[in-house]
């Protein structure tokens, strides 16, 4: 009896997404900004919306994000990305608009902009990178720095008596009526990265369906300013950040549940 031999052929199962330009990034070794960029780019590819997407870059480490995403993009003043995204989306409602902001941008100087954009239910998506530190300026204490965390401006650890407690932005935004989908995910291992991608995909679908403002907060690593190796930084996210910043969906408005089940 003849046994049919299985002919194998080699196929690419993972390659750089088309929405991410083939240029090296300026990020430090082990910085998860690169992972977050790739996840957004993969989602834009899969939804087929790259040609009509406009990204708004922040001030911070991700200031050059417009150079990395193969979409249209622009650069906002510090913290004002939600205001700029509001204008773009209102003038061109047919476009997909997203802001990509860090914690110094979104949770400090730009708190007013993000809160009012979310309250108004502006139809854009925000990707919020929370690495508990000001990365670009040299590792100073941020609003999201954990109690007791050492930074260059809190060398004895963050003292909550004088510096207050870190802000849980996802919970704050989730309390606003205009927000349709607010989630927090982490980027510290492969499993969590995959979950983060699903949340980002849902956030963009919420925008495409016109349901309201959507935001995904991503717990991210800053090995350089945390003075850790990249694997140590990933462990620190899991052991120190996740207990203070719980992962999950904080706002799932009416109509979004159906999108969550779609995947």
């Amino acid at each position: 009896m003849m046994v049919a031999e299985t002919v194998l052929e080699e196929q690419v199962v993972y390659a750089r997404p088309a929405s991410l330009r083939d240029v090296p990034t300026h990020y430090c070794p082990g910085c998860t900004h690169g992972v977050a960029h790739r996840l957004v780019a993969e989602v834009l590819d899969e939804l087929g919306i790259r040609e009509r997407t406009i990204g708004v870059s922040p001030v911070g480490c991700a200031v050059f994000a417009y150079k990395y995403f193969n979409t249209d993009g622009c650069e906002a003043a510090h913290g004002r990305a939600p205001a700029m995204a509001t204008g773009i989306k209102r003038v061109r409602p047919d476009m997909v608009v997203f802001t990509y902001q860090g914690d110094g941008d979104l949770a400090a100087i730009g708190t007013g902009e993000i809160i009012h954009a979310a309250t108004r239910g502006e139809l854009f998506t925000t990707i919020f990178i929370n690495n508990a530190i000001y990365g670009m300026t040299g590792g100073q204490m941020a609003p999201t720095t954990l109690p007791g965390q050492y930074t260059s401006s809190s060398p004895a650890g963050r003292d909550v008596e004088t510096a207050g407690f870190p802000i849980r932005m996802a919970e704050v935004i989730a309390g606003l009526p205009g927000a349709a989908y607010v989630a927090r995910r982490s980027l510290h291992n492969v499993k969590e990265i995959m979950k983060a991608k699903k949340a980002i995909r849902t956030a963009f679908k919420v925008q495409l369906a016109g349901l309201g403002f959507s935001m995904v907060e991503l717990l991210s690593a800053c090995p350089t300013n945390w003075s850790m190796s990249p694997p140590e930084a990933m462990r620190w996210i899991e052991e120190a950040m996740v207990p203070y910043y719980p992962l999950g969906d904080f706002k799932v408005a009416e109509g979004v549940e159906a999108l969550l089940k779609e995947r």
């Binding site: 299985t6 194998l8 052929e9 080699e10 690419v12 199962v13 993972y14 750089r16 991410l20 090296p24």
Partner: peptide
Amino acid sequence: PDVCITVYRQVPA
């Protein structure tokens, strides 16, 4: 984080 890796897999034709 730097999208350096391309993955190939042998699949039946």
